[in-house]
């Protein structure tokens, strides 16, 4: 007997396969970091396997006959697939390389220096890079932005007068900064893109107003406790500032 194809099963199998492949592409190219944190990586691989299982199950049973076809349940996969496609296109991410290059700031200087062991209780023992005790220099690698900020702001004394190299997007909102201050900020993702927080060193720079808001800059400055009228504030007094390229990973993370 010539077998009839069960169209709803085939549709479901194909959409599940497409979503699995789309997720796999997100993971391989690290584009998923635009939406969720690296901590989700193993779970997303699990989701890919699960979707592939659903797809295989449907395609193996594509000749199972049915009178009632539940085409609408395919929408449960088709909607996220369509939104993912639209979002990736809108962000211009389709051209992401399959093996993303590491960021220059991390590769060039940070790894070359001696490791630093965090003292902040919650992260005690965690190794950070880019620390040069003799030269009193810290090069903040992108993925360690949150940890260096936590370590330095938690106990600034040992780092005073250190030269710090960092990078970020210029933020000079007058609600938070005086005319001679700005911050090279990074967006901290703790759960997913639904919760983003802006973090960064407060920099003192006489020509801060000349900087374009949201421009990517690389900043070198000395960490100092600046006397204000009523209190002291930890600031990075800028020695050098220059424009730089946007980083590969759009966000930084807290783990």
């Amino acid at each position: 007997m010539k077998r009839t194809v069960n169209a709803s099963r085939v549709a479901e199998g194909i959409v599940a396969l497409l979503l699995a492949l789309c997720l796999l592409w997100l993971l391989v190219t690290r584009v998923y970091l635009n939406y969720v944190t690296p901590r989700t990586l193993p779970y997303l691989y699990f989701a890919v396997v699960a979707l592939l299982s659903i797809s295989a199950f449907n395609l193996i049973r594509m000749f199972e006959v049915a009178h009632i076809h539940r085409y609408t349940q395919v929408l449960a996969l088709l909607i996220p697939l369509a939104l993912l496609t639209a979002s990736i296109t809108e962000k211009g991410l389709w051209s992401a390389p399959l093996i993303p290059a590491a960021d220059a700031a991390y590769e060039g200087s940070a790894l070359a220096n001696e490791p630093y062991t965090m003292q902040t209780p919650a992260y005690a023992g965690r190794i950070l890079h880019g620390y040069d005790a003799d030269g009193q220099t810290i090069t903040v690698a992108q993925e360690e932005t949150y940890f260096w900020l936590t370590e330095i702001y938690n106990n600034p004394a040992p780092f005073l007068n250190y030269t710090i190299h960092t990078m970020g997007q210029v933020m000079k909102d007058p609600k938070y900064f005086s005319a001679d201050c700005f911050s090279p900020t990074r967006k901290l993702m703790t759960c997913c893109v639904a919760d983003l927080y802006t973090i960064g060193f407060k920099c003192q720079y006489a020509d801060a107003q000349s900087l374009a808001e949201d421009a990517w800059v690389s900043v070198t400055g000395r960490l100092q406790m600046v006397d204000l009228e009523e209190y002291q504030e930890l600031r990075l007094v800028v020695d050098q500032i220059e424009p730089c390229a946007a980083p590969t990973d759009p966000y930084v993370y807290s783990f």
Binding site: F46, E90, A194
Partner: peptide
């Protein structure tokens, strides 16, 4: 859409 997808990609594997 990004917020929607972020929450979806976060929730999907755990739901599965």
């Amino acid at each position: 859409i990004s917020v929607f997808l972020g929450t979806y990609l976060q929730a999907l594997p755990f739901l599965m």
